[in-house]
Design a protein around this nucleic acid. Structure first.
Lengths: 240, 240
DNA sequence: CAGCCCTAAATTGGATCCAATAAAACCTTA
DNA sequence: TAAGGTTTTATTGGATCCAATTTAGGGCTG
């Protein structure tokens, strides 16, 4: 479905997220259309979509500029994710988990236990963890039965650096990373326990705090370019 | 700027919100373009935007359908608004209010006091209240200094019936409406007090509960068509 | 009689063309 | 020389045209 349009959209998203399009830079339809090898029409649609997602801002009547990303705005988006996932967890606890949800969540927990059992992690382990982390969070959001939460989160995820779908890993200090992700995994266990026990407030509190645990993007962003060499970003592909 | 496009967008929004386009109904480009008297292009853009806003859902490869609105989904959106505005209030309390914010909020409170002082309200009073209510909420969101909250809320507001910008008033029972809106106004006072005292948790809790107070759209929606005659909806125009 | 295939129609997405608008540069005048 | 106005150019938004894809309907065959 719609090859050129999808291509333009995800390419532009990547260019913004990777910094290839610098923050504050002005983007115009015709040059980007030529650069992407498509007509102006899909670019126009993509610009509108990216504006909705908050990646571009209208620059008066003359095209768009790339949104400026500050460490504060990243922290703010992480807070938003925290309260939204907290709400999802609370509502999931109040509704009670379906058998399928229990099975999926338990599988994620088991897989994670197996990863961390050996007392250290490799980068490949973290890619696996990243995957099950996504499944875990997604399942809780589904279990909330609140589509508005799901939508609000989906929008927030588009903001670069605030997404669950991006994990920053410092490959120079894998012992520390082990402790960090093991901690995050323990929080998963705690949330699951709270959900099973229908402890809505507890589930919400854990989830809110948990938002800070999995990502250190604010640090990554604030770090100098020289230090950033050791930071590897595990990013999930857009599959829309 | 862009007359046809804006016209198409806001007209379609109104048609969906008013139920002129029934939930689940399929909408195609060509008929709507002809109905609105514009070309297919602005309609296409509008459809994409409305999809981003959650008002339309893609119906496979063949156009869009109007999103189904259930009382549960309205309640869910209200919950989302609650946690987001709660977050905004907490962050505003933690940051502290600027002199301008204090002035604006205090003005809203004074205006409201004047409205409710006489012990009853008219529909015109509620229009005035609606206006200051918007200003009050907007000011707290600004004061949070978190643009991600602002964006997430803006998106959520697009969902019909979940918005602060819509107040449902039962003109058959204005005594009850007086008590309801007076209660909401008292919550404003409490939030303001918490903000001034830098009591973040308290401000957040009040704001979360407050989301349920100002709107009874879930009831309105669930009510039969016959009873809905006495319900008047005060809606703010889109001014984008 | 039913199932499958083929064809036709409808609808969406993309490209090119045209108009409107705003910004920038240059020229003229004081 | 500076300021204001005018002209030109660049860029966005809209319309129409074209291609591709999907769905539905009808016919054919087993």
């Amino acid at each position: 479905m719609s090859k050129a349009g999808q291509h333009a959209l995800i390419t532009l998203r990547k260019m913004i997220a990777s910094g290839e399009l610098a923050a504050g830079e002005r983007v115009a339809e015709i040059p980007t259309a030529e650069a992407l090898g498509v007509s102006r029409m899909p670019v126009r649609i993509a610009f509108r979509t990216l504006e909705q997602e908050g990646l571009l801002v209208k620059a008066g009547a003359r095209g768009y500029t790339v949104r400026e990303i500050s460490p504060e705005s990243i922290a703010g988006a992480v807070e938003v994710r925290g309260v939204l996932e907290g709400l999802a967890a609370r509502q999931a606890a109040e509704r009670g988990l379906s058998a399928k949800s229990v099975a999926v969540l338990r599988q994620c927990l088991d897989d994670g236990d197996q990863l961390f059992e050996k007392g250290y992690v490799t980068e490949e382990d973290l890619e696996v963890y990243h995957d099950l982390n996504l499944r875990f969070h997604q399942q809780i959001i589904e279990a909330s039965g609140n589509p508005a939460v799901s939508m609000a989160l989906a929008r927030n995820e588009h903001l670069p650096f605030a997404s669950v779908s991006a994990l920053a890993v410092d490959s120079n200090d894998m012992r520390r990373e082990f402790r960090r992700f093991n901690f995050a995994h323990m929080q998963h266990h705690a949330v699951f326990d709270a959900l099973l026990s229908r402890q809505g407030a507890r589930a919400e509190a854990i989830m809110r705090e948990h938002a800070n645990a999995t990502l250190r993007y604010a640090e990554v962003f604030a770090s100098t370019a020289g230090m950033a060499d050791s930071i590897k970003v595990i990013q999930r592909e857009e599959q829309k």
